[in-house]
Amino acid sequence: MSGGTEAGPGARARSRLTVLSGPSGVGKSSVLAELRRMAPRVHFSVSVTTRKPRPGEVDGVHYHFVDAPTFHRMAAGGELLEHAEFAGNCYGTPRAPVERALAAGLPSLLEIELQGARQVRAAMPEAQLVMLAPPSWEDLVRRLTGRGTEDPEVVARRLAIAKQELAAEPEFDEVVVNADVRSAATRLLDLVVGPVPGA
């Protein structure tokens, strides 16, 4: 990759790993799409999941879609940096691409669920945890119920999980409120490529 935002002095010696998490419906996909446009040099980890693709999702771009046996083989073989079950599906971060990017000095971003963020914090205490939050709880409810792609029971379960995730805000280093996609992406970019403590 070429172009984009540079990571600043010291990035080659010690690159920054940022973990982005937030409740379903908060707009993570939209913010990350804008961030990709703004900073093509940033390494974006592509998670592995057993979830079925949603309309418009591309294998290898949005997720690596695999079946359950393949996922469990990867987890057992130590190929995943973290893995967790969320809303009945398994998600995980392939270890090798992240390690290669960090070794090359590229600022790297993982978008994972709360369980996975906690695993990364335990394994890599220097990782920066960022929560993407809605402007209000009412806004998040509107976003989830307005999707129209899931039945009411699934939406209710996602809202219950969202409450738990938002309650974990004190565990995160930074909170970015997604009231406007471009503004949220700009703030996130500042965090991803900012100076690395001790670099």
Rank of each mutant, 00 (worst) to 15 (best):
P9C: 09
P9I: 08
P9A: 09
R12F: 14
R16V: 05
R16I: 02
R16T: 07
T18W: 00
V19H: 01
G25W: 04
V26H: 00
K28W: 08
K28L: 11
K28D: 03
S29N: 15
S29V: 14
A33I: 01
M38I: 14
A39Q: 10
R41V: 04
R41G: 14
R41Q: 13
V42G: 04
F44Y: 09
V46E: 00
S47N: 13
K52H: 14
K52A: 15
P53E: 09
R54I: 09
G56W: 05
G56M: 06
E57Y: 08
V61K: 10
H62K: 11
H64N: 08
F65A: 01
F65D: 04
D67F: 02
A68Y: 02
T70A: 11
F71D: 06
F71V: 07
M74Y: 05
A75W: 09
A75P: 02
A76R: 15
G78F: 06
L80K: 02
L81Q: 03
L81I: 10
E82H: 07
E82N: 10
H83N: 11
A84F: 14
G88F: 04
N89R: 15
C90D: 10
G92E: 00
T93C: 03
P94M: 08
P94C: 09
P94D: 07
R95G: 02
R95H: 04
R95N: 02
R95W: 03
A96T: 11
V98F: 00
E99M: 09
E99H: 07
R100I: 04
A101P: 00
A103N: 04
A103H: 08
G105C: 08
L106S: 11
S108A: 09
L109E: 00
L110G: 00
L110I: 11
E113K: 14
E113S: 12
L114D: 12
L114S: 11
Q115N: 08
G116C: 03
A117V: 12
Q119D: 02
V120Q: 01
A122P: 03
M124H: 09
P125H: 01
A127K: 02
Q128K: 13
Q128H: 11
L129S: 10
M131Q: 13
P134R: 08
P135I: 13
P135T: 14
D139G: 12
L140P: 05
L140K: 03
L140S: 10
V141C: 01
V141W: 04
V141H: 01
V141Y: 07
R142F: 14
R142V: 15
R143F: 11
R143S: 10
T145E: 13
T145V: 11
T145N: 07
T145P: 03
R147V: 09
T149E: 15
T149P: 05
P152R: 08
